[in-house]
Design a protein around this nucleic acid. Structure first.
Length: 887
DNA sequence: TCCGTCACG
DNA sequence: ACGTACGTGACGGAT
């Protein structure tokens, strides 16, 4: 006897509502980083797990309602017309529930014109005839009409664990009718929540009595004349049509035209990798962290590690000679900022043996220093730049590095930029080393553990670096990224380390003088604002400011944020005319920003050597750009004169030098011209036209540059920017403050004039869809899983990202190559000129006067020849006695 | 720790 | 109908 298979049919909408309202009182506690509510997703996951556990189904289908209009609304336009709108906090979660089902290997379906009920009814019948036992799970009693032999309908009472199971027998016992007679009952009594009326004055009790007596609506009307005279009889006769309409409305379809097979609902293996990524996106710590990881550790860290502790120079002398040609090395620091963080210790692996120490000075013993500075023994590390800078503080110059676990992981997937060795390894399913948080704790509790625990942690780190190398390097080759790592990122780390170590001189006195002036200004503006507001309040508080502007002064609130009124610049700009206080607030904001972020902020970061040593994050951005922290020297003001003055504080080390700056002109558009191979665009750059004027001619259909006025050029410039960002009519319209139709017309005209740009954009999106990622010229990758999302917002975002990333990323590749070549050129020519900063398309140097003539030629020459494109690269340079004057 | 705001390319 | 320009970091305030 063959065992019947089991099919679980789930009413997705009903369950999602249950999941959502069960956590309604804590709905705001379930919000992920991006502000998305996650309560229903979270609870749905728990419910699904519980259902799968209980029923152990072979097949599962989760059915959803497709939309408001169905064949039932065609029959009766008010059908479900009184339903309250789905709360937005739930609505936004539905796409993610579907995504989660995909990751879980469960099929889901929705179908235009039909409700979830009809999909369920149809499949239930189909499965019944194909030797399945069917369980329907829903919160909606209507579905109980499906109960039959081998079809059981479970109606949720509370959660999913408390249910009422409807079988034909239970039906008979409970109501004295058969399941299908429920439809007849509904025809008479109607349904309030679905908003169809039934026959006047007939409710559940009367309907049940009538159906028990006559068996069906049809039979009832057969005998309606025989009924004795009553108001009810009148109603029944008058509303016969309604009764039959309601009969049809209540009937769940069992012949929905479904375009897939029952076999397609077989439960698939869940995709753990995608699920983990999904949990991370949702911030579902409980599903991810503790239990999962801890159990992994218990199972996987069985393998012990033996290590030798080095305490004295004599211990170091006992170290074996390196015979493998390489060592793994970890320099442990307490804190992120390696320019000043305390040393914790170090570990290394030599010929498969592990050595650890917390005596940092042992690194400067001749044997170890020689090892680290050796040009023949390769070093394998996690975060080479951190290691270089840290060691330099001890007077050691790290040389010959052939593997950086962090850098390689980042190139393989820029999302894998976890700055923590243990966590990164864990994401690759290597559970040798714990994360630093697991060992050191976090926040106020962060502290060094006992020696034994620390030493084991350090030993495991180097073992992890070693064990990860082969796999990661071979993936690098698979990705065609060997050159990107060997010739760009790895050498760049050494260049960046030098720049960070040198730092840039910042004159505290200049900033302090500014601080005095700014404080004075702030006080004056503040007084004016208080006078106009009629009270004192905290201008820096958007909440208090909103109350003053929009409640007390009754200015019209233009835009709202999640938490209240928006008081951002564009809002205030539109309110400027209405009240003079608005201009004062804008001024206050501007001055306060300069004071707090730039004057006071920068003052705090000046080291005793009078210099600022930023850290470039080489493994952070999704596109391949660098970022700069502690402090960020890539967003020093320049656009407005008041802020630009900050640049007066950045000066050369000595009086005989100048600050010299070179920047690429229109590098992203040139990259686009190259990558798209668009002849019109390439022609503009080859002929050295003003690209924005050129675009203006194209989109405004002009025949000569003289016809381009400044407004046309401004708009064309915005279009050019838009193109690089992955244009949309909406975005362009907002930026230019023009109607969307006109924005669309600009875009259409642009693409007509630069047809291969359009082709390039389309191809890039296609590539993202088929490969899952996009690439730069140097094969830097970015994965875009949301390109397949059925959520419009996410999908559109992924599409724009697909268009932008290869362009922004290639520009990043180019300047990185230029920086490596630049450093080499300065060294080879024995110049004293130092490269100090990089600001995405700009390099800043400190140049002794007597080298100025050379550098003025050398820098542009190196930058423009970094890569050979089909269009020329152009560099503009300038210099002065401070960064301010290098403009 | 998150949010709104604003500085840069 | 939906509802956004791409990439970053730091600050003060609110929670």
């Amino acid at each position: 006897m063959s065992k019947r298979k089991k099919l679980l049919l789930i009413d997705g909408n009903s369950l999602a509502y249950r999941a959502f309202y069960a956590l309604y009182n804590v709905v705001d506690k379930f919000v992920n980083n991006e502000g998305l509510h996650t309560s229903a997703i979270y609870n749905m996951k728990k419910m699904l797990d519980s259902l799968l556990e209980t029923h152990q189904p072979d097949n599962v289908l989760v059915a959803f309602d497709a939309g408001k209009t169905t064949f039932r609304t065609d029959m009766f336009s008010e059908y479900k017309g009184t339903r309250a709108k789905t709360p937005p906090e739930l609505l936004e979660q539905l796409p993610y529930i579907r995504e989660m089902l995909d990751h879980m290997g469960l099929k889901w379906h929705e179908q235009d014109n039909y409700e979830a009920d009809d999909i369920i009814g149809t499949l239930a019948k189909r499965a019944q005839s194909q030797d399945f036992d069917v369980v329907v799970v829903t919160g909606d009693k209507d579905l109980t009409q499906l109960a039959d032999t081998h079809i059981q309908v479970d109606v949720t009472v509370k959660g999913v664990n408390e249910i009422k199971s409807y079988t034909p027998a239970y039906f008979e016992e409970e109501l004295g009718i058969k399941p299908l007679q429920l439809i007849d009952m509904k025809a008479l009594m109607g349904d309030n929540s679905d908003n169809y009326p039934g026959v006047t004055k007939i409710g559940e009790k009367t309907a049940l009595k009538l159906i028990q007596k006559y068996g069906s609506v049809k039979e009832l009307y057969h005998h309606v004349d025989e009924m004795k005279k009553s108001k009810m009889k009148e109603n029944l006769i008058n509303e016969k049509k309604i009764a039959f309409l309601c009969y049809d409305l209540a009937t769940i379809k069992t012949d929905t035209p479904i375009d897939f097979d029952l076999a397609d609902t077989a439960v698939q293996a869940q995709n753990s990798e995608q699920l983990v990524a999904f949990y991370q996106k949702m911030n579902f710590k409980s599903f991810l962290d503790k239990e999962v990881l801890d159990s992994q550790f218990n199972q996987n860290t069985q393998e012990e590690i033996a290590y030798t502790v080095l305490n004295t120079e004599a211990d170091v002398d006992q170290l074996p000679e390196v015979t493998d040609g390489f060592v793994a090395f970890q320099l442990e620091l307490f804190g992120q900022n390696y320019h000043e963080a305390d040393f914790v210790g170090f570990s290394l692996s030599i010929n498969g043996q592990y050595f650890v120490s917390s005596v940092i000075d042992l690194l400067t013993t001749p044997k170890l220093q020689k090892l680290l500075e050796s040009t023949t023994i390769n070093k394998r590390v996690f975060d080479v730049k951190r290691t270089i800078v840290g060691l330099r503080r001890l007077g050691i110059t790290l040389k010959s590095v052939d593997f950086d676990m962090l850098l390689v992981s980042y190139l393989l997937n820029p999302d894998h930029n976890q700055n923590d060795l243990g966590e990164l390894a864990q994401s690759y399913n290597c559970f040798d080393a714990k994360s630093d948080v697991q060992v050191y704790g976090k926040g106020a509790k962060k502290a060094l553990p006992e020696d034994e625990m620390l030493f084991e942690h350090l030993a495991r780190k180097v073992r992890t670096i070693e064990s990860m190398k082969a796999g990661l390097m071979s993936q690098l080759t698979d990705h065609n990224q060997d050159q990107l790592f060997d010739e760009i990122e790895l050498p760049l780390a050494f260049v960046l380390a030098e720049m960070e170590i040198i730092g840039i001189k910042a004159q505290a006195s200049t900033l302090q003088e500014m601080s005095v002036v700014l404080s004075q200004q702030l006080q004056e503006i503040e007084a004016r604002i208080y006078a106009q507001a009629g009270e004192e309040f905290n201008i820096n508080s958007p909440k208090q400011l909103g109350q003053i502007l929009f409640e007390k002064l009754n200015l019209p609130p233009v835009k709202k944020t999640k938490t209240g009124y928006s008081t951002s610049v564009d809002v205030l700009e539109t309110l400027k005319k209405k009240s003079p206080i608005v201009s004062d607030i804008l001024d206050y904001r501007q001055v306060a920003k300069i004071q707090s972020t730039y004057v006071n902020g920068l003052l705090k970061t000046i080291h005793p050597d009078q210099r600022i040593h930023t850290r470039y994050l080489q493994t952070l951005t999704a596109t391949g750009r660098l970022s700069s922290v502690d402090p960020n020297l890539q967003n020093i003001p320049i656009r407005l004169e008041e802020g630009r003055k900050i640049r007066h504080a950045f000066v050369p080390s000595n009086e005989d030098s100048v600050i010299f700056s070179s920047d690429y002109s229109q590098v992203e558009l040139r990259v686009l011209a190259h990558m798209s191979e668009d002849e019109n665009m390439q022609e503009a750059f080859k002929s050295d036209y003003d690209i924005h004027s050129h675009t203006a001619m194209k989109i405004f259909n002009l025949s000569s540059p003289e016809e381009v006025d400044s407004n046309m050029r401004r708009q064309a410039k915005a279009v050019n920017f838009g193109i690089v960002y992955g244009i949309s009519d909406y975005g362009l319209a907002k930026n230019l403050d023009i109607p969307r139709k006109q924005a669309q017309a600009f875009i259409d005209q642009y693409f007509a004039q630069y047809p291969k740009v359009k082709q390039f954009m389309d191809d890039t999106i296609e590539q993202a869809k088929s490969d899952g990622y996009v690439e730069t010229l140097m094969h830097r990758r970015r994965y875009l899983p949301d390109i397949h999302s059925r959520n419009f917002h996410l999908r559109s975002f992924a599409e724009r990202t697909a268009m932008n990333s290869p362009i922004q990323g290639t520009a990043a590749d180019i300047i990185k190559i230029a920086m490596i070549n630049m450093q080499k050129a300065l060294q080879e020519k024995h110049l004293r000129t130092k490269m100090l900063l990089q600001v995405h398309d700009e390099l800043i140097f400190e140049v002794p006067q007597d080298e100025l003539a050379i550098v003025e030629k050398l820098v542009p020459q190196v930058m423009t020849s970094a890569i050979q494109l089909d269009v020329p690269l152009v560099v503009d340079s300038s210099y002065g006695k401070s960064w301010y004057e290098a403009k």
